Amino acid sequence: MTTLTRNSAQSLSTVALFAAVMAVLGLVPKIDLPFGVPITLQSLGVMLAGCLLGGKRGFQSLALFLLAVAVGLPLLSGGRGGIGVFMLPSAGYLIGYALAAGVIGLLMGRLPSKTPKQAALSALVASVLGGVVFLHALGIAGLVLIAQMPLEKAFLLDLAFVPGDLAKAVLCAIVVHTVAKALPDWPLGGKAA
């Protein structure tokens, strides 16, 4: 029988906490777009999980969230849940949540974050690269594969999300700046304290 150490208990609790943050962000009403992919606030949770938890725990928290959605919990914006949501045009974005949190966390862990200002700038860069470029690439792939859209059309439709997600990346950087200032020992990007 393995004993739960303080670090592993803390890790488990932060993973579960960020899965819950994603669920809370799902309470904000979605804005439906005609091509089947809604605008939601949950991509902010992806950025925060990666920046604040790091690649491994960020991925785990979003994987836990997606597992809860898959078993039917209505945690996505608009009260959606169940395995069927992974068959919709938005599936590339949903599956991308966990992967993007991992990428954001890996980037954040390699960027400078010694000062709150450096941490904020690093969070902005990591969120734009992982939460906009990478996540949108997976979303476009989902539109092409599931909605059978031509690549050019999927790319153009995806552009509707870019301004909002850039604003979320800025908001994530502000939150990271605040955390770095208030909790200077917080392991941003999963860096060892």
Results as ranks from 00 to 15, higher is better:
residue 6 R to V: 08
residue 7 N to D: 14
residue 8 S to R: 15
residue 9 A to H: 08
residue 9 A to C: 07
residue 10 Q to T: 12
residue 10 Q to S: 12
residue 15 V to D: 00
residue 17 L to S: 09
residue 21 V to A: 07
residue 23 A to L: 07
residue 25 L to V: 05
residue 26 G to A: 09
residue 27 L to V: 08
residue 28 V to Q: 05
residue 28 V to C: 06
residue 30 K to R: 14
residue 30 K to T: 10
residue 33 L to Y: 04
residue 36 G to I: 05
residue 36 G to M: 04
residue 37 V to N: 05
residue 40 T to Y: 00
residue 44 L to V: 01
residue 45 G to D: 04
residue 46 V to K: 01
residue 48 L to D: 03
residue 50 G to N: 05
residue 53 L to P: 03
residue 54 G to L: 00
residue 56 K to E: 04
residue 57 R to K: 13
residue 58 G to I: 01
residue 58 G to Q: 03
residue 59 F to M: 06
residue 61 S to E: 02
residue 62 L to W: 00
residue 64 L to T: 04
residue 64 L to Q: 00
residue 66 L to R: 03
residue 66 L to V: 03
residue 68 A to V: 07
residue 69 V to L: 04
residue 70 A to W: 11
residue 70 A to L: 13
residue 71 V to F: 11
residue 72 G to C: 09
residue 73 L to T: 12
residue 73 L to Q: 14
residue 74 P to R: 06
residue 74 P to Y: 06
residue 75 L to S: 10
residue 76 L to H: 09
residue 76 L to C: 12
residue 76 L to V: 11
residue 81 G to K: 14
residue 82 G to R: 10
residue 83 I to C: 12
residue 83 I to A: 15
residue 87 M to Q: 14
residue 89 P to T: 07
residue 90 S to I: 07
residue 92 G to H: 10
residue 97 Y to T: 06
residue 98 A to K: 14
residue 100 A to H: 08
residue 101 A to T: 06
residue 105 G to W: 13
residue 105 G to Q: 14
residue 105 G to S: 15
residue 106 L to K: 14
residue 106 L to M: 15
residue 108 M to H: 11
residue 110 R to M: 11
residue 113 S to K: 15
residue 120 A to D: 08
residue 120 A to Y: 03
residue 121 L to R: 10
residue 121 L to P: 02
residue 122 S to T: 05
residue 123 A to K: 05
residue 123 A to E: 06
residue 124 L to M: 09
